[in-house]
Design a binder for these strands. Structure first.
Lengths: 337, 337
DNA sequence: ATGAAAGCGCTAACAT
DNA sequence: ATGTTAGCGCTTTCAT
């Protein structure tokens, strides 16, 4: 067993409350005994037991984070932002990966409650808040635009606008039949981007047919299959808007294999601007999200909520997307990279 | 405050030990009261407090995992394997990201000890075991070939062989001056791959010059800069072995920008076989590691150690690498993909 | 400055 | 079957 404060106290022949005081830098211990205690703690390799500490303090100094997919560089960048910010405030992060599975997400919420985290940051796998969030009596930051949940702060991207500028770029570049590779139907972000897609098409007087929307998983494989399906259903397609870059990468793979020229025959635009999208061999036109910042902002927001208590008003922060034109669409590049 | 078993007991007018028994499915409660208790627990939205539970049980049912970089798909795939395996055994995972920083790694070890995890799986950022691992009285699985640490199990790849087959492939394909883009000098895996590089060169009677080795960070940017440096130091270079695929991607970016033909002018091989390396636009020749399996094996190994107790012998499992020939080196592809 | 004691939420041994 | 009690490691109040 690991040594406890009792072991230190016994070794030194003093009471263990003094040890607790000394180790927590509280007043009420002479400089001399404090030094003795610290030395002994080091000698014994003492580490405080956070379970016991959390039990009495009622705070665990840890934040739970739930993301849908760890292999998507978009989310891992975001987590990086969260972690860096947490270091500064001396918090630990308990990271959970839902795999875009709402049931698993719910189960993680329970896990985090059991672990007594001080707050939760979640990128939901589903399109709207269920009961589990409504009466979660815990500071909550949702990485989604959830107006329905009033007990949570929300950090989101203007996805509708993102979809709109993406598709408008496609239209301006001369593409006529533009399909949308949606992610999972339950994903709110994806549906918001679809809304932007529709808006841009309507504005241009182009029909927005439901058959031009393919739902798939947020994976390279999903994008590959969805592209095949889209082109089979509608061979007229000459423009593709993918709900995220990973899906776009799958589309690129399919188009490459079928020797379909990009951007000449078909134009392709993604979403997220993940690091791989700017490789010279890829040069994917896409929509940027300030992802690292979203992570740090999410963390700062949750800490703010924890410190201010449950009465403080919830914030809703909406960040703006940015069009990144590379070489999978016609028209000149807007970045020097 | 969240409800406790005492609240349930009070509500029902019974003792809280009965509640504990019922909720843990232990015998000693009538079917009737058990049902009452379960109903009340649901009504109150009761969630057990894992801190209190862990405090008395002395097990937390959680495993700490430390990886160097979450944005590298290699590690995120590995974590995925660990998580999936942990679900089956009903363990939670506490994930930490060291950022290839040994000091941060040490600090996470302490954090995990404080959190009372039942075991630790670590991919170390440094090349050998320091004291912190030697007297960690906790089941430990190291994702590295650490023969020096006898109190840990090790899951590793035969990196020397991996480096050897990579460079031999380069040599067989006719490249004459082969450089190595190493990762951080403290990374054991990277150094083992370097050893393989040297072996292959020696065998072929080629000089293995230290000036052909560039140390860098395991990132696209690192690979980009290192390639520039390598070609500046030695313009003769016509073959590049990168310590991992992410570095190779950076190399590819540099070579692309400089209009250096791959694989004609320079041949490039990576290591890891991350998902992005097989995109048709990339088609990176590389060395495969069975990464998902490494994750699941690591988890199974740690659970095994936890169950068998400290006296059980430690395992050392070495997996074999596999050459994946794509189009960044001359010679025909060996995969149908 | 130091010690004794209560209590955080829970499990388990021991009564009844 | 049910209740009582001690104790896990710690912080904190209250005495001294």
């Amino acid at each position: 067993m690991s040594p406890t404060i009792k072991d230190i106290a016994k070794e030194l022949g003093i009471s263990y409350s003094s040890v607790s005081r000394a180790l927590n830098g509280k007043k009420g211990v002479s400089e001399e005994t404090r030094l003795d205690i610290e030395k002994m703690a080091r000698r014994l390799g003492y580490q405080p037991n956070d379970l016991a500490r959390g039990l009495v303090n009622k705070i665990s100094k840890t934040i739970g984070v739930i993301i849908p997919d760890i292999t998507n560089p978009f989310f891992s960048e975001m987590v990086k932002g969260i972690i860096e910010a947490s270091k500064k405030e001396n918090y630990d992060i308990f990271l959970c990966v839902s795999n875009w599975d709402a049931a698993r997400e719910d189960s993680y919420i329970k896990t985090l409650r059991k672990k007594q985290v001080d707050g939760i940051i979640v990128k939901p796998a589903r399109d709207e808040s269920t009961g589990i969030y409504k009466d979660l009596h815990l500071p909550l930051v949702v990485l989604e635009s959830w107006p329905k949940v009033e007990n949570a702060s929300a950090i989101s991207l203007n996805n509708v606008r993102g979809g709109y500028i993406a598709v408008r770029h496609l239209i301006n570049s001369g593409y006529k039949n533009i399909g949308f590779l949606a992610g999972k139907e339950e994903s709110l972000s994806s549906m918001e981007r679809k809304q932007g897609w529709r808006m841009a098409l309507e504005e241009a007087g182009m029909p927005e047919l439901e058959k031009n929307v393919i739902y798939t998983t947020f994976s390279i494989e999903g994008g590959y299959e969805a592209t095949r399906e889209l082109l089979e259903k509608n061979p007229e397609i000459d423009g593709i808007f993918a709900a995220n870059d990973v899906i776009a990468l799958g589309a690129l793979q399919y188009l490459g294999e079928k020797n379909i020229k990009v951007p000449d025959t078909i134009g392709l635009i993604g979403f997220d601007n993940i690091s791989y999208s700017r490789l010279p061999q890829i040069m994917l036109t896409t929509v940027n999200q300030p992802v690292y910042e979203m992570g740090t902002i999410a963390f700062e927001t949750i800490v703010d909520r924890i410190q201010k208590g449950p009465d403080a008003p919830n914030k809703s922060i909406v960040l703006e997307p940015e069009l990144i034109i590379r070489t999978t669409t016609r028209g000149e590049t807007n970045e020097k990279n």
